[in-house]
Design a protein around this nucleic acid. Structure first.
Lengths: 136, 136
DNA sequence: GATCGGGTCTCCCATTATGGGAGGGTCAAG
DNA sequence: CTTGACCCTCCCATAATGGGAGACCCGATC
């Protein structure tokens, strides 16, 4: 399968945009599999590179690897129902938006505190006071 | 110093909102120090609890521990210039906002893809197509 | 005074995703 | 046959937090 004379991990890395280090890691956690040559070197075919690209794109979209595991299964299943894909994606979107909102809320309150911090050589600063718990 | 008969780590945890596990960790990384009783138990005074509260508030504001290390030094320095505090806070704010913006961008593009995914029992779904790299 | 419950001690491990580096094997070109 | 560029497998590190094991300490109850 996947061709007898595939490319080495370095080439697969270059063509997929996934580092060799990560390819080995993905194999270790069972996300992908790798053929081996007689000398022990991993060997990859174009199909494997496509899978790696899929993974990289999913990582670019901040999908956690466990989600990617499911997406790969759905991808491989030509007769998949798109409902599951959509459900997975929307759940992921909500998690992302929640995290972003939390970060923004924190940033905003901190920016507010900073606005009222003189920022000169005087020690007075509401940021420190907030951290002390005088207001919290 | 800090009183001969301080409270145990459990009490300090309860009063500061920092778990005992984390208190030990903060000590291990040199963020705080702990007195010891004859029996080896850690002992804390009100001043220590104040420090722990400070740390917890800073963590609530998503300050990394290394930033907190600097903030603690500034806090302890009564004659500190607030400029350094403000600089640290604003740098942190920018990092937070950047991260939030990145998450939002990803969420938005993924939500966009999901909108055009039928989400029924048909296999067609632009999310999968995107991950395949057909559009990326 | 023996026992029991709850708190504490120190270590080790796990998480998420990624990378660095050591020490050693393989191979092709010169 | 050496050199250089790969590849291999392990171990370690990151940031912050938690879980749990095995051992110890203490106060209270029977």
């Amino acid at each position: 399968m996947r061709g007898g004379r595939g490319m080495t991990i370095g080439h697969a890395a270059a063509r997929s945009g996934v580092s060799a280090k990560m390819i080995r890691h993905y194999e270790a956690i069972g996300l992908i599999e790798s053929e081996r040559r007689a000398n022990g070197y991993r060997s990859y075919g174009p199909q494997d590179v496509a899978v790696l690209r899929f993974i990289r794109h999913a990582r670019d979209l901040a999908f956690p690897l466990e989600d990617i595991r499911k997406l790969l299964a759905l991808w491989r299943d030509r007769s998949r129902a798109s409902g599951e894909v959509k459900r997975l994606a929307l759940a992921h979107v909500e998690a992302l938006e929640e995290k972003a909102a939390a970060l923004n809320a924190v940033a905003q309150s901190l920016r507010h505190l900073a606005q009222h911090c003189s920022g000169d050589d005087r020690p007075d600063c509401p940021i420190i006071e907030e951290l002390e718990g005088k207001t919290a």
